[in-house]
Design a protein around this nucleic acid. Structure first.
Length: 374
RNA sequence: GGUAGGGUAUCCAAGUGGCUAAAGGGCGCGGACUGUAAAUCCGUUCAUCUACGAUGUUCGUCGGUUCGAAUCCGACCCCUACCA
């Protein structure tokens, strides 16, 4: 399923290829987030135009609305949303964190109150696999507990142990319901918060379970960047080299490059789409906020060195759309921001192949951080 | 011409004697967003300055009452509705 094509000499950066039931994914890869069976404000054609190879959906959200049964009855998530390329679904583990006021965690699973109407919900390692099976995701994430930062070590140990027990139950149940036969890949998730020894132990125990792929979760929950990188660095060496490694929920362009150097292969983040809706655009010289008055008559494109559908418009026009609250602003900026991330990953892959990834990425980061004004 | 209601900062709009440079919203300006309860949230928005504080000038206009007025009184100027 995963071919390791090349490993960098100067770092742990890897070039790989993950083959799924809906085609291959070249890694390192950035996966746009489409929680509710849509990458917000974009058609699937527009998402493909950015160069995206795979997108995310969310088990928790889709199972509440419109329900996994409905999606299954309509032919599965791919058909439902008209996306024929790979889909990874998150388990709902992150909602344990982000909707923490609405849930209660027990050994058997998580009791939720729906954020929509308060209805009682239950998510377990087993039904989470079943739901993702109904959705037809190519990559299914195990149910985990995303730990808040910072947390006491005693709590982290107990929570991570439960996540490990849940991982085992998930993998066993996925086999029982025939996910491997359908070429569906189940990924285990490393937790451990900001304790490297817990991260290491969790990585090793997951590796022993022999998952088709591994994720590092519980990062980007409020900790400083150095802490995040430290925890990824603690985990990757203990995960099998011949399996994909996915760092969940990250990150900034700089973080992506730094984590690639640590041996991570896959990433997802709402950043490009959310920032787009909040009028921010990525450029090679840093982030710009199109709401700023200085762009009012700026005839230049977002970034003169980048070419995509959005860069054929001026900053002044994009700012106008933003200020007028026109929905096209969300679409155009989302196209650009996702394309920016895809471009970054394509270049990273290219430079890993060339063998100069580390030099290239340092230069890229330096330029990105150098200029405050744009 | 008569009757009633109303004129508050960039706009809308509270406030009917001191705690009011004046609630709330909007617009504008700036910031934050990392496995999406997010096209959201936060800050700021009279002026000047030695600027997490100080001073000055404000509530249609002019005048008055009062220790003190956006708030009370008088005149005047506009606006709205209805009646002639």
């Amino acid at each position: 399923m995963f071919e390791l094509l090349q490993t960098s000499q100067a770092s742990a950066a890897r070039r790989g290829r993950l083959t799924t039931a809906h085609g291959a994914v070249e890694t390192p890869v950035f996966m746009p987030v489409g929680t509710q069976a849509t990458v917000k404000s974009l058609t699937v054609e527009q998402v493909k135009e950015t160069g995206a190879q795979i997108i995310l959906g969310n088990t928790y959200h889709l199972n509440i609305r419109p329900t996994s049964e409905l999606i299954e009855s309509l032919g599965g998530l791919h058909k439902f949303m008209n996306w024929d390329m790979p889909i990874l679904t998150d388990s709902g583990g992150f909602q344990v964190f982000s909707l923490s006021k609405l849930r209660k965690i027990k050994e058997e699973g998580i009791y939720f109150n729906s954020h929509l109407d308060g209805a009682k919900l239950f998510l377990s390692p087993e039904n989470c696999m079943e739901i993702q099976g109904k959705l037809g995701s190519d990559i299914c994430m195990v149910l985990d507990e995303c730990i808040p930062y910072p947390s006491e070590k005693d709590f982290v140990e107990k929570s991570t142990d439960r996540t490990l027990r849940w991982a085992k139950r998930s993998l066993e149940h996925s086999k029982k319901i025939g996910l491997p036969e359908r070429n569906k890949l189940v990924f285990g998730i490393v937790q451990g918060s900001h304790y490297e020894d817990v991260r290491i132990r969790c990585s090793q125990e997951l590796a022993a379970m022999d998952f088709p792929g591994y994720a590092i979760g519980g990062v980007s929950v409020g900790e400083p960047q150095e802490e995040m990188l430290k925890q990824v660095a603690a985990s990757t060496p203990h995960l099998p080299a011949n399996k994909p490694r996915y760092v969940m929920g990250v990150g900034t362009p700089e973080q992506l490059l730094r984590m690639i150097a640590l041996g991570a292969d896959m990433f997802d983040c709402v950043m490009p789409t959310r920032l787009a809706r909040h009028a921010n655009a990525f450029t090679l010289d840093g982030l710009i906020n199109l709401k700023n008055a200085k762009y009012i008559s700026d005839a230049a494109p977002i970034d003169a060195e980048i070419s995509n559908y959005t860069t054929s418009y001026s900053r002044a026009y994009l700012r106008h759309l933003v200020m007028a609250n026109e929905m096209l602003a969300c679409t155009l900026l989302s196209i650009h921001n996702i394309h920016f991330f895809q471009l970054l990953m394509a270049q990273a892959r290219h430079h890993i192949e060339l063998g100069d990834f580390e030099i290239w990425s340092e230069a890229w980061i330096n330029r990105y951080n150098a200029k405050q004004d744009s």
